[in-house]
């Protein structure tokens, strides 16, 4: 199991495209949006500099992107190249496979967050002032919740063409309602209600509390939402992946 986790980390860090999309692209988006001074064109009043608001949001967005986009496509490759089929005839179960992959990607998510926060500290003087010890738990719940989306999409889609609309709809929807680039409080009430039960806004909010100590009254609720997605998503992903992909 440990070797499989290490294997997934090796695979990730040897894949230049994965490094670009998972680590470098979110950092680039953060820098561009910070320099664009978006707070001047949107209503923004939550007692936090916009760069700090954005930084926590981009961290959540990067975790979502890693789970949904990169996992969906690499798992379709694994299936089409019969990597999964070959593994399925060993004693390694589909559950063990997903567990090891989730642990490896959780470690990547920790690196993502550390890298982004490092950039925020150096470029914009961002300083943690929240309950930072909650951060690993929040990242664990958030990363697995989004990885589960990737596992399910890659199991249901036959190929890249079929996966593309699924990832686009899920990714865009979650990004838009995710409290990432602007506060969801700016959205109509019915969209705010939808956002409240999705994992993206919960992750953004929980990240902000952990890093900067704001939105504390929402923190327990956000953790519950993430835990719900973690548990239900894991159960669904395990069942669908075993039935449709790992064979």
């Amino acid at each position: 199991m440990n070797l499989l986790v290490l294997t997934f980390l090796k695979i990730f860090f040897r894949n230049r495209r994965a490094i670009f999309f998972v680590l470098l692209l979110p950092a680039g988006i953060f820098l561009i949006l910070s320099f664009m001074r978006v707070e001047q064109i949107i209503q923004f009043d939550i007692g936090l500099p916009y760069t700090d608001f954005l930084l926590a949001g981009i961290m959540a967005y990067a975790i979502m992107q890693m789970g949904i986009y990169t996992v969906s496509y690499s798992f379709i490759d694994y299936r089409k190249q019969t990597v999964l089929k070959r593994l399925s005839v060993t004693p390694l179960s589909s559950k063990q496979f997903l567990q090891a992959h989730s642990v490896a990607r959780f470690i990547v998510a920790l690196i993502q967050v550390a890298l982004l926060f490092g950039i925020g500290m150096i470029a914009f003087g961002s300083r943690p002032s929240g309950s930072i010890w909650f951060l690993p738990l929040v990242i664990l719940l958030g990363s697995v919740a989004f990885l589960n989306f990737g596992y399910v999409i890659s199991s249901l889609a036959r190929d890249y063409e079929e996966a593309a609309p699924y990832t686009a709809i899920v990714g865009l929807g979650l990004g838009f309602l995710g409290d990432v680039f602007f506060p969801v409080a700016n959205l109509p009430i019915f969209l705010q209600n939808i956002a409240q039960i999705l994992p993206m806004a919960a992750l953004s909010g929980a990240m902000r509390y952990s890093l900067y100590g704001i939105q504390g009254e929402q923190f327990v609720y956000n953790l519950l939402v993430l835990t719900g997605w973690f548990i239900l998503g894991t159960a669904a992903a395990n069942a669908i992946f075993a039935k449709r992909a790992y064979k």
Partner: peptide
């Protein structure tokens, strides 16, 4: 049991 599938795939970065 040992198995040689008609087509076997392996992780390409290993």
């Amino acid at each position: 049991i040992g198995i040689v599938l008609q087509q076997s795939g392996f992780f390409e970065y290993l």
